Simulated assay, not measured.
Amino acid sequence: MKMYYDADVETDALEGKTIAVIGYGSQGRAQSRNMADSGADVIIGVREGGKSWDLAKEDGMTVMSIEDAAKKADIIHILLPDEIQEKVYNEQIAPYVESGNTISFSHGYNIHFDLIKPGEDVNIVMFAPKGPGSMVRRTYEEGFGIPGLVAVEQDATGDALQIALGMAKDTGLTKAGVLETTFKEETETDLFGEQAVLCGGITELINSGFQTLVEAGYQPEIAYFETCHEVKLIVDLIYEKGFEGMWKDVSNTAEYGGLTRRETVITQEAKDGMKKVLQDIQDGTFKKQWADENATDGANLKEMREAEGQETIEIVGTRLRKACGLQKDD
């Protein structure tokens, strides 16, 4: 394991270079403002006249079209949604990329799956905060940062790693620590974590527990508190103290019950399912399915979103969160 901290990183490789952040969503807004506040020369490339254009201007950033930003920049940091990066890169960025430029990302998807193919005369790097944009910005303003990853796919200039680490430092990540990885490792583990545990796995586990209690005749509101609401409390303990620290903080009854019953729920069959999820990522099956989904303008995804909103746990949860003051009306 190779970790980099503030003391390990100089930002000399960024001197005299203009960084164009393409996209001003959660990560784009946070990363660009942090780098600018750290003294880097940052410009924003977005669609002219859109909401992001206006927001970036309100934030005091230098804003221009994606094409103009790509022309002006030495480092092009692409923070657009995965599904549109290829089209935007080919049509609005690639014609203006010059030899010696650096193409940068915070997720390796489009490089790892050969959707974006820069020439051999440019650097291809990544630095990836391990947290949402709001936390990237908030922790920076508090004088700290969140952990991150750094990777170099192609080093054309001999200082690609120093450039990526410099941006990571200016974003605040090296205060917490940046771990060196590869585009392949970051992409495949990130997709797996989202699908099998963080987004797909945990929502299915929560909903299955909720349904089990409701079908057994318990009040939906009580079921929601026991299977969904308290998940955050437990995850926060694990985040701060690890498994061992969490077990110490819950009751002995909870510890014994959890340790003796968890494999009844997460069985070998579930672990085999996780291996299938990983295999689909590694062999390109998921990449193809996601491309096919986007070719239909996300028709299936839209149906799934609508169905998710009609789940009983969502209806009950919305009512309870509002009753407890946790969720405000839109």
Results as ranks from 00 to 15, higher is better:
K288I: 03
E293P: 00
N110H: 02
V136I: 15
E153P: 05
K287G: 00
I75K: 10
E230M: 14
D329Q: 11
G284K: 11
D82P: 08
Y4V: 01
Q195D: 06
V97D: 09
T267P: 07
T264L: 14
I93F: 02
N294I: 01
Y140V: 10
K72G: 04
V152Y: 00
E58R: 14
M61T: 02
I78R: 10
N34M: 07
K287C: 03
G49S: 09
L55E: 13
E311A: 14
G143P: 04
D280V: 02
G258H: 00
Q31K: 02
K87W: 01
T203I: 15
Y96H: 15
T139M: 13
Y89G: 02
G28W: 00
M135N: 13
E142S: 10
G200K: 14
D329G: 02
L198W: 06
V9S: 06
I206D: 01
G201R: 09
T253H: 00
F127S: 03
E244L: 13
E141D: 13
V250F: 00
Q85M: 07
H107N: 06
P220S: 02
Q219I: 02
K275H: 11
E226N: 05
G28R: 04
G284Q: 09
I163Y: 00
K328I: 07
G257V: 05
D37H: 06
I315N: 12
L301Y: 15
A270H: 04
L173E: 09
D170M: 10
E120F: 01
F113K: 13
Q211T: 12
Y140R: 14
V231S: 15
I76S: 05
E186H: 08
I313R: 12
E306V: 10
E255L: 05
T227Q: 14
E230L: 11
G242D: 07
L205Y: 10
D54Q: 15
A36C: 07
R262H: 12
E188M: 02
K51C: 04
T285V: 09
M246S: 06
Y239Q: 12
E91T: 13
